[in-house]
C-alpha cells in the first residue's frame, strides 16, 4: 500500500472505527456501502484530504461512490493534486 493510500486508511480507521471495532480496512473495503463511514460523517474525511494535500474537492465530486474505498479516494486525490 503506497503512502497516500496508507494515510487515507489510517485516517479512516482512527476517525470512523469505534474502540473495539476490529474490522479490517483494506484498499477495496467498501466504506460507505459497507457501513463504516456514513454520508453524514464523510465531511471530515473530505476536509482531511483537502488540508493534507492542499487541494479543493468540489462538493459535486465528493460523492459516496468516489469515497467508497481507499482506492477510489486515492484516485480522486491524485486527480486533484495533478490537476
Amino acid at each position: 500500500m503506497d503512502e497516500l493510500k496508507k494515510a487515507i486508511r489510517d485516517y479512516v480507521v482512527k476517525e470512523y472505527l469505534e474502540e473495539g471495532d476490529d474490522r479490517q480496512v483494506g484498499e477495496d473495503t467498501p466504506l460507505i456501502t459497507g457501513g463504516i463511514v456514513d454520508s453524514f460523517s464523510m465531511v471530515s474525511l473530505k476536509r482531511f484530504l483537502e488540508r493534507k494535500y492542499s487541494i479543493q474537492i468540489p462538493d459535486a465530486e465528493a460523492t459516496p461512490q468516489a469515497f467508497d474505498t481507499v482506492n477510489s479516494i486515492a484516485a480522486l486525490v491524485t486527480r486533484f493534486t495533478k490537476g
Binding site: 470512523y16 469505534e18 474502540e19 456514513d38 453524514f40 460523517s41 465531511v43 471530515s44 476536509r47
Partner: peptide, 25 residues
C-alpha cells in the same frame, strides 16, 4: 454521529461547517 435524522437535515440546511464525533466519545 447517532443524532436523529431531523438534526442531520437541519445541519444540511445551515451554511456553518459540519463535523461529527464518534457516538458519546
Amino acid at each position: 454521529r447517532l443524532v436523529h435524522a431531523s438534526i442531520v437535515d437541519g445541519m444540511r440546511l445551515c451554511k456553518a461547517m459540519q463535523d461529527t464525533f464518534k457516538h458519546s466519545d
